[in-house]
């Protein structure tokens, strides 16, 4: 019995149709791409980080690694987070 059933299954092509695969793949990738869209796309973050660093470096010596800019998305609002770890002893210009 099982052999015949298996054969019928195979012949009927119980493998997923490619159109179904296409739809699933699109739904997943587009959900991901749409989430990254919206008013505040993080495209500008690297440039923002560079400029902020340049300003801060005028007054304080900070390491490139101790400086982080992050954008967090929440339902109603986004949070732009600047995280600067200051050296133990702050060396101001004057």
């Amino acid at each position: 019995m099982s052999m015949i059933a298996g054969l019928i299954d195979y012949l009927r092509g119980n493998e997923k149709k490619t159109a179904v695969v296409a739809k699933e793949r699109l739904q997943i990738i587009l959900a991901h791409e749409r989430a990254g869209r919206g008013t505040a796309t993080p495209d500008y973050l690297p440039a923002l980080q560079e400029e902020l660093m340049a300003v801060i470096a005028k007054y304080i010596h900070v390491d490139r690694d101790s400086f982080k800019v992050q954008l967090e998305k929440h339902d109603q609002y986004d949070v732009l987070e600047l995280n600067i770890t200051l050296p133990d002893k702050v060396n101001s210009r004057r």
């Binding site: 149709k17 159109a19 296409a22 739809k23 587009l30």
Partner: peptide
Amino acid sequence: RVNAGEMLSVTDIQEI
């Protein structure tokens, strides 16, 4: 080809 399951249907595209 849509009926053969080889092509996205209009409904699929609209849904997406």
